[in-house]
Amino acid sequence: MNHSLTLRRSDMRLRDHYPIVVTAQKEESRDFWQRYLGFRTVFDSSWFTLMAHDGASIAFMTPDHPSAPPGSKTFTGRGVCFELEVDDVDKAHAELTGKGASVTYPLSDEPFGQRRFGFADPCGLWIDVVEQIEPEAGYWERYMQ
């Protein structure tokens, strides 16, 4: 007998969804996302910040607050990427570097069909800014077998 939980589309209605990054750099991360990425603060306290921009949301939480979800650990900057897809990556790159953002992965055309650049925020979260472009001819065929 299979006891796994199966949710149909109508069983659970989401009101919101966002990652919570547990970090001691809550304020620095909040300020960074406001200054460089245009996110606005929806809620802010000494221990939690929720931010949003054009349908995307992210939250930052200090590691010492008792309301931290069970199992959450302080983020170490590894294993997570926050993808920001834009219409014009060259314009986004010019805007961000014009504001002084330190881009550590240069503007690049990738063979799999993205033009992108990247950098990390103060807590180490990797931010990948991408525009979809045509992949190199035949690139995806080897993965579609």
Score class of each variant (00 low, 15 high):
1 M>P: 15
1 M>K: 12
1 M>N: 14
3 H>W: 01
3 H>S: 09
4 S>A: 13
5 L>S: 11
5 L>T: 13
8 R>C: 07
9 R>N: 12
9 R>G: 10
10 S>L: 15
14 L>N: 13
14 L>T: 15
14 L>H: 15
17 H>K: 13
17 H>Y: 15
17 H>E: 09
19 P>Y: 05
20 I>R: 06
20 I>T: 06
22 V>R: 02
23 T>W: 02
26 K>A: 12
27 E>I: 09
28 E>F: 04
28 E>K: 10
29 S>A: 14
31 D>C: 08
31 D>P: 10
32 F>V: 01
34 Q>V: 11
36 Y>R: 11
39 F>C: 11
40 R>K: 12
40 R>T: 15
41 T>H: 09
42 V>P: 06
43 F>Y: 15
43 F>R: 10
44 D>M: 13
44 D>L: 14
44 D>Q: 14
45 S>N: 14
46 S>V: 11
47 W>G: 09
48 F>H: 08
49 T>C: 06
51 M>E: 00
52 A>D: 10
53 H>D: 11
54 D>E: 14
55 G>I: 04
55 G>H: 03
56 A>S: 13
57 S>R: 07
59 A>K: 00
60 F>L: 10
62 T>C: 11
64 D>Y: 09
64 D>V: 01
65 H>D: 07
65 H>E: 03
66 P>Q: 10
67 S>E: 13
68 A>K: 01
68 A>N: 12
68 A>W: 07
69 P>C: 07
70 P>C: 03
71 G>L: 01
72 S>R: 00
74 T>M: 01
75 F>H: 04
75 F>E: 03
75 F>K: 00
76 T>W: 10
76 T>Y: 09
77 G>T: 10
77 G>I: 06
79 G>K: 11
81 C>L: 12
83 E>A: 08
83 E>D: 08
85 E>L: 02
86 V>T: 13
86 V>F: 09
87 D>L: 00
87 D>F: 03
88 D>N: 01
89 V>H: 01
89 V>Y: 04
90 D>P: 01
93 H>N: 12
94 A>V: 05
94 A>P: 01
95 E>S: 07
95 E>R: 02
95 E>K: 08
96 L>P: 00
97 T>Q: 08
98 G>Y: 09
99 K>I: 06
99 K>H: 05
100 G>C: 07
101 A>M: 09
102 S>R: 13
102 S>C: 07
103 V>A: 02
105 Y>W: 05
105 Y>K: 12
105 Y>S: 04
106 P>T: 00
106 P>A: 06
107 L>D: 04
108 S>Q: 09
109 D>K: 03
110 E>F: 06
110 E>A: 03
112 F>K: 06
112 F>W: 07
113 G>C: 00
116 R>G: 12
116 R>K: 11
117 F>A: 07
117 F>I: 02
118 G>Y: 07
119 F>R: 06
120 A>R: 03
120 A>N: 09
121 D>Y: 03
124 G>F: 08
125 L>R: 03
125 L>Y: 10
126 W>D: 04
126 W>K: 08
126 W>Y: 08
129 V>S: 02
129 V>R: 02
130 V>A: 11
130 V>C: 08
131 E>Y: 07
131 E>R: 05
135 P>Q: 01
136 E>N: 05
136 E>F: 10
138 G>E: 05
138 G>I: 04
139 Y>V: 04
140 W>N: 00
143 Y>Q: 14
144 M>Q: 11
144 M>D: 04
144 M>K: 14
144 M>G: 10
